[in-house]
Design a binder for these strands. Sequence first.
DNA 1: ATTATTATTGAGAATCTATTGCAATAATAA
DNA 2: TTATTATTGCAATAGATTCTCAATAATAAT
Lengths: 158, 158
Amino acid sequence: MNEIEVFRKYVKESGLRNTPEREVIIEEIFLTHDHFDVDTLYLCLKNKKCSISKASIYRTIPLLIESGLIKEVFFEDGHMHYEHVLGHEHHCHFRCLGCGKIIEFKEDEVMDIEKKFSRSHGFEVTGHKLELFGYCRECLKKEGKDRRVSTVDRVDRN
Amino acid sequence: MNEIEVFRKYVKESGLRNTPEREVIIEEIFLTHDHFDVDTLYLCLKNKKCSISKASIYRTIPLLIESGLIKEVFFEDGHMHYEHVLGHEHHCHFRCLGCGKIIEFKEDEVMDIEKKFSRSHGFEVTGHKLELFGYCRECLKKEGKDRRVSTVDRVDRN
DNA sequence: ATTATTATTGAGAATCTATTGCAATAATAA
DNA sequence: TTATTATTGCAATAGATTCTCAATAATAAT
Ligand SMILES: [Mn+2]
Ligand SMILES: [Mn+2]
Ligand SMILES: [Zn+2]
Ligand SMILES: [Zn+2]
């Protein structure tokens, strides 16, 4: 099932109605694999044949989340950013404090942390969000200061 | 050095000026160890002898972050929430999707993830933010459905 | 201690994101 | 084809944060 089919199914099962506006929004979102936000999405659609009101976009976002198509990634620059869920396996993010670049990476060890916490607290853990931050290679080079450690692990953080 | 002393040092070194308003804000923040947000901080101060304008609070927050006293924890309910850095060792958060409760916990394994990522990418990782979410014991009990797994680990998530 | 410099304050205006009311429209079911 | 009512677009609104500006006050220099 592609994103449109998933959404149609969700809409039907929820007693909602599908509309061309909603499908256009979904198509635009899934045109790339990038993170996105409401405003750039709105402007992209505006610069094409089909312009859709911001209100409709804002009203569609929760439906896309509810239907499992997208999710919130992070709040930045005063507004929320989203990313695909369908067709993307779960991943973590690294944010460069120098240039703002976001790098995605896959990490299984977090599952161990989930399990450990779940076991020790008797909670059910359904997911996580992990963000690392620091400085990317380019930014380190730019600053002249090379990465402090290379093969040897860094010691004592705090 | 306590929080006031740290801030005075920061202010001096940065060529800024210290003010009673700023010290009152800092004192109020460090009165408890809880997460906080601008509005409740503003109301707390208003309900005491010393009322301080919201503008000043908003202008002080970045200074407190810059001086290493506090940091952003998460954006929720339409506004940012903060927590202490000074006097609090780094920790992760669990958020109950049922009741909204936040649980703090300490976790060393994330350091391994940092190191692993740092090594494999040649980046310098300076920190991280890990949030788990799911359902707390009370919410599981309330729902009748007990935690799915107890001693045996849960398998296959996605 | 006095004065000069200029960062900071408070009040309100302005901005920005996100939500909502409402009349017109259109998707579904009968 | 008709009836029902969810959805749309627009404008109004709410809420958080920033900004403007005149008055104030913290520091540095007399
Ligand atoms: Mn991502
Ligand atoms: Mn915390
Ligand atoms: Zn960078
Ligand atoms: Zn709970």
